[in-house]
Design a protein around this nucleic acid. Structure first.
Length: 114
DNA sequence: GTTATGACTGCGA
DNA sequence: TTCGCAGCCATAA
């Protein structure tokens, strides 16, 4: 599975994000051991639409809780609808109560692949 | 094969 | 306080 290594790891982390929670590129990248590859995480998510199965990329936002990648979902409302569909409040492309919705894989990530 | 870009983040002045 | 630059790795041309 670890074809691309980094990419696959990103998908694995994003996939375990619990319902109603969100995470950030930096948090995921940091979990992988490369906090500076944060933008690479987003790039990986971009491919999440391709054929890697469903990836809750809508649960991943930038450090400010902004839906920076919303326009990658097709329409500027798709990402927001997905988040609101999970009970997450989004206003002005920004996640409300982001601090409590934030899900840090480094701290909350279950011991996947045990 | 090489060059450029990307859904970001942290540090310095 | 705000603004600008460097870094990570893979994909695309």
């Amino acid at each position: 599975m670890t074809d691309s290594g980094f990419f696959d790891e990103v998908f694995q982390v994003v996939r375990v994000i619990p319902y109603g929670r969100v995470s950030t590129y930096g948090a995921i990248a940091r979990y992988l051991g490369s906090p500076q590859s944060a933008r690479m995480v987003g790039w990986a998510l971009n491919k999440s639409f391709d054929g890697r199965g469903f990836i809750p990329a809508h649960r991943v936002v930038n450090r400010l809780g902004l839906l920076t990648g919303k326009h990658h979902f097709g329409y500027s409302d798709t990402m927001r609808q997905l988040l609101e569909s999970e009970g997450i409040i989004v206003e002005n492309d920004q996640i409300q109560e982001f601090d409590q919705k934030f899900w840090d894989p480094v701290k909350e990530m279950p011991e996947a692949e045990g």
